[in-house]
Amino acid sequence: MASAEEVAKAAERRDVRDRWLLSAPALLVILLAATGPLLIVLVYSFLTPGAYGDVKWQFSPDAWISVFMERDIFDDTLSVAVAHVTIFWRSIKLAVVTTLATLALGFPTAYFMATRSEKTRDLWLFLITIPFWTNLLIRTFAVLQIIRNEGIINTILLKLGIISAPIQILYTDTAILIGMAYVYLPLMVLPIYASMEKLDFRLVEAGYDLYATRFKVLRKIIFPLVKPGVIAGSILVFIPALGAYVTPVVLGGGKNMMLSNLIELQFGQGRNWPLGSALSITVMVIVMLALLAYVRNAGRSGVRHG
């Protein structure tokens, strides 16, 4: 008996070892070309800004203090960094709304794709990705053409006499929202599609046999089953939206900064790399906390439904 136990243990050890080997390439690439170099950023956040960018190798907590507190340059009082809080809050808000918007559009679209005949599904998959074979900048410029005052929407509405003057969409938060929802939509559709494609419709049938309404079937059967896809999609949209750089500049008119613009300012014209580093780490921590909370929450309710 003891030997059987040993065999099982050895098998388990082998399994764990294999799993490490399998994940090694991904971990290695990420360590070398993404995570590892970030340690530099962590170190930089505790240094003194160099005169014209870069850092001086001299310890200073100033960067971290000025993430949260600001010293008024005129009356020298220390207070909460209102500007930073405002920018963080605006970015988070826009990212959340973008995620919800893409979910509302993306879920039915993924469902539609997944319920096509097996042969045409790949075609739909390609149809949804083709617009994205052009890069983000080009797509953002294309959106700009549509929502600007002389753009298609305003021209049609004017011609139809529905409005008498163009609606100013461009250079508003709505424009940023439209742009981000547009550019990040496939990040929502694809993961949901990937987990929905496998959906066992016998379960749905069973639901109808028990006289469930369509909405109830959707909520109680379909949604819980594709939850991993919804979670993956939400993460893939939320985080890039939070760090969006191009879209706010092109469509929002750049009057109000988002997180990325604030950080970019420190590494660019502001020449305060330590503050840029400290702000970046703050963003990372916020994202990680949000992610943990979200995955925990979603995971728990998933279990309840499943």
């Binding site: 950023v41 997180l259 970046s280 963003v283 990680m288 992610l291």
Partner: peptide, 10 residues
């Protein structure tokens, strides 16, 4: 992890 960092930082 690479998801969680604004591009500029990476």
């Amino acid at each position: 992890q690479p998801l969680m960092v604004p591009e500029i930082v990476t």
